[in-house]
Simulated assay, not measured.
Amino acid sequence: MKMNPVLLLAFVSLCVADYPDMDHHKTIYISENGPRLFLQMEQSKVISYRGGNATLPCKFHREASSGNGNSQKTRIKWTKLTADYLKETDVYVAMGVHRKSYGSYHGRTFLQGASENDASLIITDITLDDYGKYKCEVIEGLEDDTGVVTLDLQGVVYPYFPRIGRYNLNFKEAQQVCQDQDSVIASFDQLYDAWRGGLDWCNAGWLSDGSVQYPITKPREPCGGKDTVPGVRNYGYRDKDRNRYDVFCFTSNYKGRFYYLIHPTKLTYDEAVQACLKDGSQIAKVGQMYAAWKLMGYDRCDSGWLADGSVRYPISRPRRRCSPTEAAVRFVGFPDKKHKLYGVYCFRAYN
């Protein structure tokens, strides 16, 4: 039996009214002939890097029976989705001649507008926080459709724990220490990609969705058992305030120069900070060393102070006495800051 569209609409609205405890609801308009407007996302993922630009594709089409539409009444809205899809952050809205970008996206987002049906979003001067999933929504009267595209960033994931030792960070502290090292807390997808690239780390760390996980490429007894398969071990979602772990951070390209400062003597930590300042730079951060090592192939067999008080050195060409078996950022530790035993790595930002 063919139901009258008006009666069908009333029926849907009645069903919604029968459940007053629902947090969110909306009236669903159902056309007798089905939807007449639909979106096409030409790519499911776009890859860029910090400081670069990206175009998130989104085009909308109308069935011939719906005519050409009215561009003045077409509303285009872009939002960023959280990992659980329960929340959205407004990014950009356009309707006719009216345009508005929101929050940290202000002044960095524009519609590509290659044709009247092009709703693709351009994001410029990309930041680490721009990584994630974006939703494109186009609305014309009672017709609407949505599509999702992921903005991925070239970069590197690394494990981190502070001077006070392992398993000492709650979730908020984990976010902050990554930020302090010119990074952000890594997502599961970023950690998974790092694991596929060979990252092996036997200490559990926070991820951006509030879960705690760690990547194992070489199964062994202390890391889930030697007879287990390689993979990303998952502790599940933990209490963000009470539970304490390490953290996995993510960083990408930077605008600046990372370098080992040639100095006639070894330095204490305070002397290292001052030496970089005297050279017109800042003492480098852990994320900057990882980015230089992973993305630029930086290689130096000299232990040097970093901003967090740790001493490390980056090896991209394994060799005897430096890192004989693998390319890695070698961790010396958190020595007494008064020890005059190390050089220093500096960073000079470009405007």
Results as ranks from 00 to 15, higher is better:
123 I>N: 03
192 Y>P: 01
161 F>E: 06
247 V>D: 02
134 Y>P: 05
223 C>A: 04
121 L>G: 06
310 S>K: 02
48 S>M: 05
128 L>S: 04
350 Y>F: 10
329 V>L: 15
28 I>M: 12
26 K>D: 15
186 A>C: 03
188 F>S: 01
314 P>H: 12
226 K>S: 07
259 Y>T: 03
302 D>M: 09
39 L>S: 09
308 D>K: 07
278 K>I: 09
113 G>Y: 05
263 H>Y: 14
11 F>I: 02
130 D>K: 02
348 R>S: 10
311 V>C: 04
127 T>Q: 15
10 A>P: 00
60 F>D: 09
127 T>C: 04
249 C>L: 01
60 F>P: 05
268 T>A: 08
137 E>G: 02
111 L>N: 09
117 N>M: 02
106 H>A: 13
161 F>W: 14
69 G>M: 09
78 W>G: 03
260 Y>A: 06
194 A>I: 04
277 L>I: 06
192 Y>C: 00
161 F>S: 03
237 Y>G: 00
243 N>H: 07
348 R>V: 03
126 I>S: 07
2 K>C: 06
98 H>C: 01
298 Y>V: 05
83 A>D: 15
156 V>N: 08
327 A>R: 11
313 Y>C: 10
127 T>N: 11
295 L>P: 09
225 G>C: 00
291 A>L: 07
80 K>D: 13
258 F>W: 04
328 A>I: 14
45 K>E: 15
253 N>F: 12
314 P>N: 14
157 V>W: 04
92 Y>G: 03
11 F>V: 03
176 Q>V: 07
86 L>C: 05
146 T>P: 00
160 Y>R: 08
62 R>F: 15
305 W>Y: 09
101 S>M: 03
80 K>C: 08
22 M>D: 13
280 G>D: 08
148 V>I: 15
90 D>G: 07
13 S>T: 11
253 N>H: 13
38 F>I: 02
325 T>E: 15
63 E>L: 10
28 I>A: 13
343 G>L: 02
308 D>I: 12
155 G>Y: 01
201 W>F: 11
59 K>Q: 14
174 A>T: 09
107 G>A: 07
128 L>E: 12
206 W>V: 01
